[in-house]
Measured scan of single mutants.
Amino acid sequence: MQIFVKTLTGKTITLEVEPSDTIENVKAKIQDKEGIPPDQQRLIFAGKQLEDGRTLSDYNIQKDSTLHLVLR
Score class of each variant (00 low, 15 high):
residue 13 I to Y: 08
residue 60 N to S: 11
residue 43 L to F: 10
residue 40 Q to K: 07
residue 37 P to Y: 11
residue 6 K to Q: 13
residue 33 K to D: 07
residue 72 R to H: 13
residue 10 G to T: 08
residue 37 P to F: 08
residue 44 I to Q: 06
residue 16 E to F: 03
residue 44 I to W: 13
residue 62 Q to G: 13
residue 49 Q to V: 03
residue 4 F to E: 12
residue 2 Q to W: 08
residue 71 L to G: 09
residue 10 G to H: 03
residue 46 A to R: 02
residue 11 K to V: 15
residue 2 Q to D: 07
residue 40 Q to H: 12
residue 14 T to M: 03
residue 51 E to H: 05
residue 72 R to D: 15
residue 40 Q to T: 10
residue 37 P to M: 07
residue 13 I to A: 03
residue 41 Q to P: 14
residue 46 A to P: 01
residue 3 I to D: 00
residue 4 F to R: 02
residue 69 L to W: 05
residue 3 I to R: 00
residue 23 I to A: 06
residue 70 V to D: 13
residue 20 S to H: 15
residue 9 T to L: 04
residue 67 L to S: 01
residue 59 Y to N: 13
residue 38 P to A: 13
residue 51 E to F: 02
residue 50 L to E: 00
residue 53 G to T: 10
residue 52 D to Y: 04
residue 67 L to H: 01
residue 72 R to N: 14
residue 71 L to V: 13
residue 24 E to D: 06
residue 49 Q to T: 12
residue 44 I to H: 14
residue 37 P to L: 14
residue 15 L to G: 00
residue 61 I to D: 00
residue 57 S to I: 03
residue 7 T to K: 04
residue 10 G to S: 11
residue 30 I to H: 00
residue 7 T to E: 08
residue 25 N to P: 02
residue 31 Q to R: 04
residue 42 R to P: 02
residue 1 M to S: 10
residue 64 D to I: 02
residue 64 D to G: 03
residue 71 L to M: 08
residue 36 I to T: 09
residue 38 P to S: 11
residue 14 T to G: 15
residue 38 P to K: 15
residue 32 D to M: 15
residue 45 F to V: 10
residue 47 G to S: 10
residue 25 N to V: 13
residue 1 M to F: 09
residue 43 L to A: 01
residue 29 K to H: 03
residue 31 Q to K: 10
residue 70 V to T: 12
residue 43 L to I: 14
residue 50 L to W: 01
residue 17 V to G: 05
residue 48 K to T: 13
residue 48 K to I: 14
residue 55 T to V: 15
residue 56 L to T: 05
residue 12 T to F: 11
residue 43 L to Y: 03
residue 42 R to S: 15
residue 17 V to W: 04
residue 69 L to Q: 13
residue 18 E to Y: 10
residue 37 P to V: 12
residue 20 S to F: 05
residue 46 A to K: 02
residue 1 M to P: 02
residue 34 E to Q: 08
residue 64 D to V: 02
residue 35 G to Y: 09
residue 7 T to A: 09
residue 22 T to P: 04
residue 70 V to H: 13
residue 9 T to N: 15
residue 26 V to E: 00
residue 72 R to T: 10
residue 45 F to Q: 10
residue 57 S to N: 08
residue 53 G to Y: 11
residue 55 T to Y: 09
residue 60 N to R: 06
residue 36 I to G: 05
residue 16 E to N: 11
residue 61 I to G: 00
residue 40 Q to Y: 10
residue 44 I to M: 14
residue 25 N to D: 02
residue 7 T to Y: 09
residue 35 G to Q: 11
residue 54 R to K: 11
residue 23 I to S: 02
residue 52 D to E: 07
residue 20 S to M: 08
residue 42 R to A: 14
residue 4 F to P: 03
residue 30 I to R: 00
residue 15 L to W: 01
residue 45 F to N: 08
residue 33 K to N: 08
residue 68 H to I: 14
residue 17 V to D: 01
residue 9 T to W: 03
residue 69 L to S: 02
residue 49 Q to R: 03
residue 9 T to Y: 06
residue 11 K to M: 08
residue 56 L to A: 02
residue 30 I to Q: 00
residue 36 I to Q: 09
residue 19 P to V: 09
residue 7 T to P: 02
residue 29 K to E: 12
residue 31 Q to M: 09
residue 33 K to I: 11
residue 62 Q to L: 10
residue 52 D to T: 05
residue 16 E to K: 06
residue 66 T to Q: 02
residue 22 T to F: 07
residue 57 S to P: 05
residue 21 D to H: 15
residue 50 L to D: 00
residue 52 D to F: 04
residue 47 G to V: 10
residue 38 P to L: 13
residue 14 T to F: 05
residue 27 K to E: 01
residue 18 E to L: 11
residue 61 I to F: 04
residue 60 N to D: 06
residue 52 D to A: 02
residue 48 K to N: 04
residue 30 I to T: 02
residue 17 V to N: 03
residue 22 T to D: 04
residue 20 S to E: 01
residue 24 E to I: 08
residue 41 Q to G: 10
residue 48 K to Y: 12
residue 6 K to D: 14
residue 67 L to I: 10
residue 61 I to P: 01
residue 26 V to F: 03
residue 42 R to N: 13
residue 29 K to D: 13
residue 3 I to Q: 00
residue 12 T to H: 05
residue 4 F to K: 03
residue 55 T to N: 06
residue 29 K to A: 05
residue 18 E to V: 11
residue 15 L to S: 01
residue 36 I to R: 07
residue 67 L to V: 04
residue 31 Q to N: 10
residue 66 T to R: 07
residue 30 I to V: 12
residue 27 K to M: 13
residue 10 G to N: 05
residue 59 Y to A: 03
residue 59 Y to H: 04
residue 24 E to Y: 13
residue 68 H to D: 15
residue 15 L to Y: 06
residue 60 N to K: 14
residue 4 F to H: 13
residue 8 L to R: 10
residue 26 V to Y: 00
residue 65 S to R: 07
residue 50 L to M: 08
residue 62 Q to V: 11
residue 66 T to G: 12
residue 57 S to M: 02
residue 56 L to F: 01
residue 2 Q to R: 15
residue 26 V to M: 06
residue 54 R to H: 09
residue 33 K to R: 14
residue 47 G to Y: 02
residue 57 S to Q: 07
residue 17 V to M: 10
residue 60 N to V: 08
residue 31 Q to W: 10
residue 43 L to H: 01
residue 8 L to E: 15
residue 40 Q to F: 07
residue 9 T to H: 07
residue 52 D to G: 10
residue 52 D to Q: 06
residue 7 T to L: 05
residue 18 E to F: 05
residue 37 P to I: 15
residue 72 R to F: 04
residue 1 M to Y: 05
residue 11 K to S: 14
residue 39 D to T: 13
residue 14 T to K: 06
residue 40 Q to V: 08
residue 27 K to F: 12
residue 17 V to E: 01
residue 55 T to S: 06
residue 1 M to L: 05
residue 15 L to V: 12
residue 38 P to E: 14
residue 32 D to A: 04
residue 72 R to E: 15
residue 6 K to V: 14
residue 7 T to N: 06
residue 39 D to L: 13
residue 12 T to P: 10
residue 9 T to A: 13
residue 61 I to H: 01
residue 62 Q to M: 11
residue 68 H to E: 15
residue 48 K to L: 15
residue 42 R to K: 04
residue 65 S to H: 02
residue 32 D to K: 09
residue 53 G to S: 10
residue 62 Q to P: 11
residue 33 K to G: 11
residue 31 Q to A: 05
residue 15 L to Q: 01
residue 37 P to K: 03
residue 35 G to A: 13
residue 8 L to D: 05
residue 13 I to F: 06
residue 15 L to K: 00
